[in-house]
Write a protein that binds this DNA or RNA. Structure first.
Lengths: 270, 270
DNA sequence: CGTTTATTTGACCCTTGTCAAGAGTAGTGG
DNA sequence: CCACTACTCTTGACAAGGGTCAAATAAACG
């Protein structure tokens, strides 16, 4: 049978306390140790990949991963370097991007709390990743991911589901980049940010009308395939048209969600 | 544990002779039946997902799938309809696309022989699919894919690898759509077509300099986020600059691969 | 061989990019 | 607490890449 590793030939990693063989599948620890408590109490555990590993096996996870905190603007993954690690975002936002030799850049997505970063099929990363805000990450080597995949069938299925979802998002973004106008692009982006805010603040009564935009105009422009000037002008227009309200730059309030939706999908001729 | 099906709640399918329960894992058939011969002799078997199922289990595959042949321009998947089937492309090319309400369309990719179409995480397809040329497909219900995933761990891993690869392609295409000029887009597209021709015609001595372009200008334009006029003009310019040669429309000969590569990555200022 | 459809080419214009300057904002340190 | 500096963001004037509309060619097909 053809071998098709998801993480082929992971580059050798510097030895770390947590870089040890996983427990055999199904082995139970009598009770939670301090490490597994970290995973059990993790605020994104129920939303992300880790939910595939049941509570009583969580020691495996805790020993396979290490948490790191990074300030805004820090490189997490360097485009073209050996692909060796995988990251879960616990808190904050990470941007993923690809670049051209002359420096032009396309941000392919933002990974918020609960999402992951660093899946690669090839020996090197085909994309870069950098923190947008202060970010808490859970790091795991590809070798350890391979072990989890081999021991927990549910994990492979969960990962497949997550990647399939990402692919659908990527296709939606291709539609945006190839066929939408600047105004439609910005409106679509704001809708995504509202959804994201709603996911992470389900109990905020204003969640329906709030968009958290932690990224700069440069990042928004590189995400939407525009220039910062066009992004700025378009947001100003939306403010002038009373579709959004103009208090702050990084927390936008939506005055007319239906109008914004119509614009995003090209139903508003204006 | 949270259940995360890759094909949730597959829509009920009309009963078909091949829509029956799979054989139990590991059950061997004494020798190949006519059905399994179809799979064993399949010309893409060694390249595609089916290689995850070993030869002695191939009856399972043969009974789970049905081959269909479709003329050019036939809808394979209707955007927004219930997601119920999955297709392997045995021969020909299928285009995948998303549309806006007013008819604007973005082709998100072309699936050539050996690739698959129809993976979906949601109840309905978020994209459409249509044949470009005459196409031979191998159809399989999502229910049957679920069974294969449950019984053959290698299959889930193979599928994960394939989807991860598709995601990387999608990211590369986002870079193209968001940040490349018309000339760079067309050059990148031609390079992809050369690679594709090389894969499918490994013994052709001209494979290094040949690009098969079965799709129309409309499809190319919808794939690159341009208009047909711009695609046409750009190809004419490449011909005038002696980078490609102008014999036919659907089989392009490359005169200077290095130049084409430089243009595709923005290294050629012209 | 004529009809239909796909492609090319031209003329013109609009959306978005480029260049440049001004206005906010956020830190920093006296 | 208030300058000072360094960004980030906004706005304006202008240019250009690519879109739109229209017509001419070239292929494809019965």
């Amino acid at each position: 049978m053809l071998k098709v590793p998801v993480f082929p030939d992971s580059a050798p990693m510097p030895p770390s306390p947590s870089a040890q063989a996983l427990h055999p599948a199904g082995k139970r620890t009598g009770r939670a140790d301090p490490d597994s408590a970290r995973c059990l109490m993790c605020k994104v555990r129920e939303y992300n990949l880790c939910s595939s590993i049941e509570d009583h096996d969580v020691t495996v996870l805790a020993q396979a991963t290490r948490q790191i905190s990074l300030p805004p603007g820090t490189a997490v993954i360097e485009e073209g370097t050996p692909a060796s690690a995988f990251f879960n975002v616990i808190n904050g936002t990470v941007k993923l991007f690809k670049s051209l030799p002359d420096g032009r850049r396309q941000i392919t997505g933002f990974a918020d709390a609960g999402q992951f970063v660093g899946l690669s099929n090839s020996r090197t990363y085909s994309f870069g990743a950098e923190t947008v805000s202060t970010v808490l990450l859970c790091r795991c080597t590809h070798t350890q991911i391979e072990n989890l995949l081999a021991e927990y069938p549910g994990f492979a299925r969960h990962l497949l589901s997550a990647v399939t979802h990402e692919l659908a998002d990527a296709q939606e973004q291709m539609l945006l980049l190839g066929r939408k106008t600047a105004k439609e692009k910005v409106a679509s982006f704001l809708l995504d940010r509202i959804k994201q805010y709603h996911r992470t603040h389900p109990h905020d009564p204003d969640a329906e009308t709030t968009a958290s935009v932690p990224m700069t105009r440069v990042d928004i422009a590189d995400y939407l395939g525009l220039t910062i000037e066009t992004v700025s002008r378009t947001i100003s227009t939306l403010r002038r048209d009373k579709i959004i309200s103009g208090t702050e730059n990084h927390c936008i309030r939506i005055l007319s969600l239906p109008n914004l939706q119509d614009i995003a999908y090209g139903l508003k001729s204006i």
